[in-house]
Amino acid sequence: MTKLQDVIASVLRDVLSAQHEANLLTEALAEQYEGAGVIHQLNLPAVTIGDMEITFRFAIDSDGGQTDEISEDGIQSMDVIVDADRLAVLPESAVHSLSLKVSPQDSVKITES
């Protein structure tokens, strides 16, 4: 079963990885421009991931969503259903949403609905 914390961590990890890859490409271009002697003639492209809001739809697993697994920080894991096909057959009252706003200036904010 999927754990909500793993889904959110995976998204955040991918965002950070994408920013890192963009930084590495910019660095490689700077070296190429400098080697070609044109670094002062060309604008160096830079990509910055700005504010992003992602909404996750999920349902708590039918066994109550709690597992016996407890993380290092003492928080009990929650098993969730995130598959769109499985969510579609559930009553709307069983489906929850969680919005995650990632902002380079404001860090990470989570709101629930």
Rank of each mutant, 00 (worst) to 15 (best):
S93D: 06
L4M: 09
I70C: 02
F58E: 04
K3T: 01
I60Y: 04
T111L: 10
I8D: 01
I60S: 01
S107Y: 07
I49M: 11
I75R: 07
S99V: 03
L29Q: 15
A22C: 05
S113G: 08
G65T: 05
Q19M: 06
Y33N: 13
D73N: 08
G65L: 01
I54A: 00
E112R: 15
I54F: 07
L87N: 02
V7L: 03
T2C: 01
A30H: 09
L4P: 04
E53F: 03
S97G: 00
E31S: 09
I110P: 05
N43T: 14
S10R: 05
M1C: 08
I81R: 00
G74L: 11
V11G: 03
S71D: 15
H96T: 02
L24E: 14
F56K: 00
S93W: 06
S113D: 11
I54C: 02
N23S: 14
V47I: 11
S113W: 03
Q105F: 10
H96K: 15
D85T: 08
A30Q: 12
S107W: 08
L25Q: 15
I60M: 04
V82R: 02
A36N: 12
G37H: 09
T48Q: 13
R13Q: 14
S71G: 15
A30W: 06
A46E: 10
D63K: 02
A84M: 05
V95E: 07
V108K: 03
N43C: 03
D68G: 15
L98R: 08
A18I: 04
L90E: 14
L87K: 02
R57Q: 08
D6V: 03
E21W: 08
S99Q: 05
F56M: 00
L24F: 09
L42P: 00
S97A: 08
D68F: 08
H96I: 01
E31F: 10
E53W: 12
T2I: 03
S62E: 15
K109M: 06
L90A: 11
K109G: 01
L44E: 06
L24A: 12
P104Q: 04
L87D: 02
T55L: 11
Q5I: 04
I8K: 09
V7C: 02
S97R: 06
S103Y: 07
V108T: 13
I75F: 05
E34G: 09
A28M: 13
G65S: 05
I60R: 03
A46R: 11
E69I: 06
L12S: 11
Y33S: 03
D85V: 02
L90C: 13
D63T: 02
Q19D: 06
A94H: 12
V11K: 10
L24K: 15
S113A: 09
N23I: 01
T111F: 13
A22D: 04
R13P: 00
A94F: 02
I110R: 14
A9S: 15
G35K: 14
M1Q: 11
E34T: 15
D85A: 06
T55V: 15
S93T: 07
V11C: 14
E112S: 08
I54L: 08
N43I: 07
S71Q: 10
E92L: 11
L4D: 01
A46G: 10
S103A: 13
S107Q: 09
L90N: 10
Q105S: 12
H40D: 15
L16H: 13
T67V: 14
V82L: 00
M78T: 12
D68W: 12
S93M: 04
Y33I: 09
V89C: 02
S93A: 11
M1L: 12
D6R: 05
L44G: 03
I75K: 06
